Computed example of a mutant assay.
Amino acid sequence: MTETARAVDDFIEVRTVSVYFQTNRYDLSPEAKAELDALAEAAKSRRGIRIELSGFADRRGSEAKNLTLTENRAKSVKLYLYNVHKIEPWRIEYIGAGKINDNARTPEELQRNRRVDVRLLANRVVTEAEEGNPGP
């Protein structure tokens, strides 16, 4: 494979945020929207970006229910970024990863598991070209 072909899939992480959800919900809170607004502004200022969304649930509930719930959480983030910020849907990939099996017991610990992790990635070649740094 040529260096150019490899460079197409060479992304660097620019920013990561997590947005949190209430039990059995996938609607975005004002705090989640604020986090996504800031991330979207960072995304709009760059070329060659991708956004990866991974939805999670706490350990309660059935596997099937949590898979659907986490996919809906990630999808709600994607739709927000598209509808509000006009980020092209092909730039955004999402997955519902299901429940996190950990030892969370307190409401605060369980809350941290009900989230979507949002990773803003930028193509390394595009980033280096914009910064004036030639690649390898």
Score class of each variant (00 low, 15 high):
S54G: 05
I92L: 07
T2F: 08
L53V: 04
Q22W: 03
A38E: 13
Y20E: 10
T23F: 09
V19Q: 07
V17K: 13
R6M: 12
R91C: 08
E35N: 02
V126R: 10
R73H: 04
G61A: 06
F11G: 04
L53D: 06
E41N: 07
P136M: 05
D37C: 04
N123I: 06
K78Q: 15
R25F: 05
Y82Q: 12
A32V: 04
E63F: 11
A5K: 12
N101G: 07
R119H: 12
L79I: 02
Y82N: 12
D27G: 09
Y82I: 03
A40Q: 07
N113W: 02
A74I: 07
G96D: 10
V84D: 05
T2R: 08
T68W: 02
A34N: 06
E108Q: 15
A7I: 01
K86I: 01
L120G: 06
R50F: 01
L79D: 14
V19Y: 07
R59F: 04
T16H: 04
E130S: 10
F56Y: 14
Q22H: 10
I87E: 04
Q111S: 12
Q111N: 13
E131P: 00
V84C: 01
R47D: 14
E71C: 00
K99N: 12
A43E: 10
A104Q: 07
G96W: 08
K78T: 11
P134R: 10
A38F: 03
N113I: 02
R59T: 02
V125P: 00
G48S: 08
E130A: 11
A32R: 06
E88R: 11
S29T: 15
S45A: 15
S54P: 00
N72I: 00
R60M: 06
F56D: 01
S76Y: 02
R47S: 12
W90Q: 09
R46P: 03
Q111A: 15
V116A: 09
F56G: 00
G132V: 10
E131A: 15
A5T: 13
I51G: 02
R105A: 11
E63R: 14
Q111D: 14
R15M: 10
F56P: 00
L120P: 06
E52D: 12
L39Q: 08
A57H: 03
R91M: 14
T4R: 11
L28W: 08
S29V: 04
K78W: 01
L69I: 09
A122R: 14
A104L: 05
L120A: 05
Q22P: 00
R91V: 09
G55T: 06
A40S: 13
R50A: 04
F11K: 06
R91L: 15
A42N: 10
R112A: 15
T68P: 00
N101K: 12
V8D: 01
R115F: 03
Y20V: 03
G48C: 10
A64W: 03
E93L: 10
N113C: 12
N123A: 08
E13C: 11
A34G: 02
Y26P: 00
N103M: 10
V118Y: 06
E35Y: 02
A129W: 04
R73Q: 13
K86M: 05
S76I: 01
V17T: 15
I100Y: 05
I100L: 15
E109W: 07
R115E: 05
R112N: 12
K86Y: 09
E93G: 07
G132S: 09
L67T: 02
R50Y: 01
I51Q: 02
E88C: 00
A97C: 11
